[in-house]
């Protein structure tokens, strides 16, 4: 079931320069949400923001009936969202898309995130841990300022980080992480799968690594969207089944379904 309703903002935090973390709640219980699903937000008071803005569901705080969104401020719409206050309401269409593969007990899953693409991985980590799977996070950013919510991630699994400027963790991209290196115990037995979200070049590099090492891999795409409901066919990605809507059949796809040249 999908909903379009005004949710109440109960928290506005600024975890780092250029980001906002919104915590939303509702009088009624929030619907069941698969990690990796997203919302479409109506941005009020920004004349140049006509369409809704798709944002991943960062975390669901079941106990407090909250849904968190982690947003990078890149343009008019997202900057307007950063000006919201506690007590304001936000019109949200949700939950949309398919979400990441459900975990199974004892399963090893590597959650690879780049930039603000780390957002949906927090809730995925929570859901994996809840079902007895074993999540590990590999998070990459330009610098330590772009690596957010690390303490939250640590609640659900071990966290490895990379930064392009070397300010935290291994220097380079996520694919340069020692976690994926030759001497890594984690990857030795190839007994894990990868779920990945981030900028496309980064996801392609991760997909390439997965393909070469025969590791199952899914990626979460961020194509431009209008309706978010599978109705307008604006957000399509080429797949082995032809053009499909990222908002409905995705945003999460197994890399074998895609036609990426990797």
């Amino acid at each position: 079931m999908k909903y379009c309703k005004d949710l109440k903002i109960v928290g506005v935090e600024y975890p780092s320069d250029g980001y906002v973390l919104l915590k939303l709640t509702d009088k009624e219980q929030l619907p069941a949400i698969n990690a990796g699903q997203f919302v479409e937000i109506k941005v009020e008071g920004s004349p140049s923001t006509f369409l809704r803005r798709p944002i991943s569901i960062h975390f669901v705080d079941v106990e407090n009936n909250q849904m968190w969104l982690l947003i990078q401020l890149v343009g008019e719409g997202t900057r307007k969202l950063a000006q919201l206050h506690e007590g304001d309401s936000l019109n949200v269409l949700f939950p949309l898309g398919n979400g990441f593969t459900k975990g199974t007990e004892g399963e090893k899953v590597l959650l690879v995130g780049g930039g603000v693409g780390i957002a949906p991985l927090l809730d995925y980590g929570r859901q994996l841990k809840e079902c007895g799977a074993c999540p590990t996070f590999l998070l990459g950013g330009r610098s330590s300022r772009n690596l957010l919510q690390l303490d939250e991630f640590k609640k659900y699994g071990e966290v490895f980080v990379t930064t392009e400027d070397g300010s935290m963790g291994d220097k380079g991209f996520v694919t340069n992480s020692s976690l994926l290196g030759e001497s890594s115990q984690y990857v030795k037995n190839k007994d894990f799968r990868i779920s990945c979200c981030g900028p496309k070049p980064m996801m392609m590099a991760v997909a390439k690594y997965a393909k070469q090492n025969e590791i199952p891999c899914e990626v979460s795409l961020e194509n431009m969207m209008a309706c978010g409901l599978g109705a307008c066919l604006c957000c399509v990605e080429k797949t082995v089944k032809g053009n499909v809507c990222v908002c409905k059949e995705g945003p999460v796809f197994n890399i074998n379904e895609l036609t990426w040249q990797i």
Binding site: S48, T49, F50, L51, N223, M224, A226, C232, L233, C234, C235, V236, E237, K238, N243
Partner: peptide, 8 residues
């Protein structure tokens, strides 16, 4: 793709 662009 891309099949849409937001405009004024």
């Amino acid at each position: 793709y891309p099949r849409m662009a937001e405009t004024a």
